[in-house]
Simulated scan of single mutants.
Amino acid sequence: MADVGDQMPSHDSPTTPFRKVVLPSEETVQIPRPPAQRLPAQQVPEQQPPDSVLSSLPPIPEPPKRGIGDIPMKVVYLVAAIIGTVLAVFLIFMLFSGDVPANKKAAERGASVAPAPASAGSAAPAPSGTASRVALPAAPASRKYPTLSGTASVVIGIVSDKNTGISYPSLAAPWKAKSFPPFSAAQRIGKVAVPPTVIASAMFPGDSPAKEPSKDADYRALAVEAARWAITTQYPQGATLTWTASKKIPVGKGWTLGYQVTYTLSGKEQVAQAMVTVVEVGKTKPAMLLASIPEAHKKHWRDINTLVERIRPL
């Protein structure tokens, strides 16, 4: 018996429906797959590598220690700049602290006030040096300092006398900074003689004032006592004094007296121009500046005018 398929025409017409082929039910078996069971994310066990794998891994190297060579160059430059600045300031301080004029070095040597010594072998008579009160005329309450004759020396610096607390001009040659006891600072022309050619500073001679000065009249009275001391210690015995000026100091508290001293030396009457200034410096005694220029050096009398105008408390 022929198959059904063999009896069908070789070509179906477009209107012929498709045949439905049905396989035997036992040839098709569908096995349902059980639903997959998933663990929560937090319950997924962490897998650790075997110990053999861990032991074979190289050890984790320690972080390298930073040495001097690892410091950034900016930090090195900054530290070097700071050190260089400190050294420069230190060197400048050391250099200039030793750069002290001879006048200032002399000013820092203190001494008690006593009669100035006469040079050895000098024919000039020694100053009286007595403590007796020499009679002096009353000082004028005010008198302008006259312009003295001569030519003013060049001012080459400032004498800062720390022992007394005052400063005043340092003058050019022939003035020279010289030790001149009992003064703490001094400039002289020529050898030590009586009377000397000197500019010198010291504390007020003698005892401290019984009453602290407060008025111009008080400082003027102290200046009179300083001039009295100068007459008895810096000039031959019998010297007399004539006041030439009386004025307040330009800065601070104090008083200046100018005077001319007449004395006899080797039988010849001579004169000297002089001044004395007392300055309040906050101590129990005021400071004193003394200048005396005998007739032998009268071409330097104008230097007294320079001192009068430029004395200052430190």
Rank of each mutant, 00 (worst) to 15 (best):
Y263I: 08
K74D: 09
K162V: 10
G5M: 15
W255V: 00
S10K: 08
G67K: 12
P125Y: 03
S55C: 09
Q37S: 10
S142V: 11
S170I: 02
A123N: 10
G258N: 01
G157H: 09
A116F: 09
P286N: 04
S201N: 03
Q48C: 06
A41D: 14
E46I: 13
K144Y: 02
P174E: 04
V194F: 00
A139K: 05
M203A: 13
A114N: 07
K144E: 15
L91D: 03
A227I: 07
A272I: 01
S153E: 05
V192I: 12
P127C: 00
R310P: 01
P181V: 12
G190N: 02
R19G: 10
S201Q: 01
A141K: 13
A41K: 15
P63Y: 01
P181Y: 11
P169N: 05
V261A: 05
I311W: 03
Q42I: 08
G267D: 08
L91Y: 00
K191L: 02
K104D: 15
F183Y: 15
D6H: 13
S184M: 07
R109A: 15
G121I: 05
F180M: 10
T277S: 11
I92F: 14
G206S: 03
G252R: 01
A296Q: 07
R133N: 10
V21H: 10
V75F: 08
T256C: 05
Y77D: 04
P17Y: 06
I293A: 03
P40C: 03
L57T: 00
D207Q: 13
T85H: 03
A123L: 13
W243S: 04
A123T: 07
E62P: 15
K162H: 11
G98C: 00
K191S: 14
A36Q: 12
P24Q: 11
T233R: 03
I304R: 07
A120T: 06
L91P: 00
V276K: 01
E62H: 12
T16L: 12
A138R: 11
Q270F: 05
S214E: 13
K105N: 11
L171E: 00
T164W: 06
A173Q: 06
R133A: 14
Q270W: 07
K74C: 08
V198W: 00
V276W: 06
P17G: 05
R312T: 12
G150Q: 03
I83L: 13
I68T: 01
A36E: 14
R38I: 12
V113S: 10
K285R: 13
P40H: 08
N305T: 05
T306K: 00
T130F: 04
K285A: 08
P14A: 15
L87I: 13
F18K: 14
G110F: 09
T262S: 11
L314E: 14
A177C: 07
A106K: 11
P146K: 07
P209I: 02
Q42E: 14
Q187R: 02
M203R: 08
R19F: 12
L87Y: 04
P24R: 09
V75L: 14
M94K: 15
P32V: 12
K299S: 13
F93T: 13
E26V: 07
S25V: 10
